[in-house]
Design a protein around this nucleic acid. Structure first.
Length: 310
DNA sequence: ATACACGCCTGCTGGC
DNA sequence: TGCCAGCAGGCGTGTA
């Protein structure tokens, strides 16, 4: 279940291998991996073949590789997607390989990127680049400059910045919290408001600040809102740091959260296990067709105070 | 604008 | 042993 830290690990691993590389050939093994590609703009294979990749950029859980001036290969890993960097002679027997990009890099020679995705919620696409709404650098790419810095794939433009993005607008986020009657977890998962947070890190951040996920966002004080945002940053940042330690810079092999960060989770997946803070058995509750994990003692629902003034 | 149900998809696990 | 329900769940879409 790749969330921001996992996707960033993938991006960082791909960047040196793809930047400056030319796509020599493409194999589309399963067309379902192109569900987000708009065929009206041309077919994926012809748009990609021969293109030079200029960078690897990420916003939230989306990553993209600009090709030419105004297009990019956009990727989303969905639930189970992987972008595996391989040598050209690597066996091609992956059961769930969906798309293969054969690259030719001026320094690294021939490389292959295999998009492997068991559950097929992920996808690749070619999309046009449009200017960002705020005119700032679109996403994280470790110092990419040039014409691509202020552009974003059209299908990603509605995705909010992630909380680790220097251009993330804290005040706008806190204002949105104050306006939303929904449970605070639901708000954290709204990628149009803040991106990169999924079910795992939402549970972790809520545990860290002792909040119940169903607590109405609008019932939080400004101070609590700030604490929550800080906790989200902390959780994402720590996971990113851990991912960075076990990551081979040349050949990416990301298997999702279970592989990297599971040992440091305080809430997610810990139903029945003691709360690391108070020892009370954690509980799992159904939420939006998935699961929420919390400590029933530390993370209680608090009735909103009656507003002092309307 | 906001809220929320739904469909997409495969593999694994647990109960009977 | 085999079968099926349940679970993993992000995101776009459709409806109110």
């Amino acid at each position: 279940m790749p969330e921001l830290p996992e996707v960033e690990v993938v991006r960082a691993g791909l960047a040196p291998a793809v930047t400056g590389a030319r796509v020599a050939a493409v194999d589309v093994l399963d067309a379902r991996a192109l569900t987000r590609h708009d065929a009206a703009s041309g077919d994926f294979e012809s748009l990609v073949t021969g293109a030079r990749i200029e960078a690897a950029v990420r916003r939230g859980k989306f990553l993209w590789m600009p090709i030419g001036v105004d297009r990019a290969i956009v990727g989303h890993l969905g639930m189970s997607g992987q972008l595996l960097l391989r040598t050209p002679d690597h066996p091609g027997d992956d059961r769930h390989a969906r798309i293969r990009l054969h690259l030719d890099h001026p320094e690294h020679g021939e490389l292959r990127i295999d998009f492997v995705d068991q559950r097929t919620f992920g996808s690749l696409a070619v999309d046009r680049l449009v200017p960002t709404a705020d005119g700032e650098v679109a996403g994280f790419s470790a110092g990419v400059t040039g014409p691509w810095a202020g552009t974003i794939p059209a299908q990603v433009s509605h995705i909010a910045r992630d909380p680790l993005d220097p251009a993330f607008d804290d005040r706008a986020f806190l204002d949105a919290l104050a306006r939303r009657a929904s449970g605070v977890k639901r708000v954290l998962l709204d990628q149009g408001l803040v991106s990169g947070v999924g079910n795992i890190y939402a549970d972790e951040a809520l545990w860290a600040v002792r909040l119940h996920g169903e607590q109405p966002a609008s019932s939080l004080t400004r101070r609590r809102g700030r604490e929550l945002l800080a906790a989200v940053r902390d959780v994402l940042g720590k996971a990113l740091a851990e991912g960075g330690t076990s990551f081979d810079a040349q050949y990416v092999n990301v298997n999702g959260a279970s592989g990297y960060f599971a040992q440091s989770l305080n809430a997610y997946g810990r139903a029945g296990l003691p709360c690391p803070r108070c020892g009370t058995p954690m509980v799992r509750e159904s939420f939006m067709n998935r699961s929420s994990h919390r400590c029933p003692r530390c993370q209680r629902l608090r009735m909103p105070r009656q507003p002092a003034s309307a």
